[in-house]
Design a protein around this nucleic acid. Sequence first.
DNA 1: ATGGTGGTGAAACCA
Length: 245
Amino acid sequence: MRQQIVLDWLEFHQPDVLALQEIKCEDDVFPRAEFEAMGYRCSVHGQKSYNGVALLTKRPLVRVTTGFRDAAWPEDRRIIAAEMEGLWVINTYVPNGSKVGSDKWTYKLSWLEKFADYLRPAVERGIQFVWLGDINIAPTPDDVFDSARHLGGVGHHPDEFERLDKIKALGLTDLFRQFNEGPGHYTYWDFFIKNALDRKLGWRIDHIYATAELASRCTACEIDYEPRRLEKPSDHTFVMATFED
DNA sequence: ATGGTGGTGAAACCA
């Protein structure tokens, strides 16, 4: 059960914040008690079977908001944002996109455009924030094995790069790339591919972005590969960013 | 050139 992987990881690493995506359960069945017993508070925006996001934090969150706050937009549960002691954390599960040209693909591109609009007011007000989650885009040739093969497919398509570039142009830094360059740093490995982790057949699609001031206070950003080696793992693994006070 | 694995939930859909 992946729940135990998360509990064990939390107990060992003790982060101030853990952002989860694809929790696939409603709020009332989220295993809140288990996390609370370890000293974490749970803010959950759950959905049965699909999607669903959560923020687990050691300290209280205020002004928790969910979704795009737009009545016209379909209510997939993919966004949870909150303020933690003056810092905003925005956790997203970006749509996968399924196949290029499909309805889900169109939805992914529209979703990314909508998300740029969602962030813009915060940027204009000078709010410092972290945006992180399953972004479902490998933005450069170094971010997926065999870029040439995948270029133009879902997760590695110029239309996605363009949408993501517009979001980054709001003033966001990819924290992992402040500390690591080159290929081979992945956060997701397809279950279809045997021994994908050891063969380095993966994708870097889970990202942590920060506004300039926060990015300059980031002292480390790394991928923890070990959980992907466990029995019954997630196909993704954890990405960690550390900030000085 | 299609299938390969895995989760949810009990067939089909999603990744």
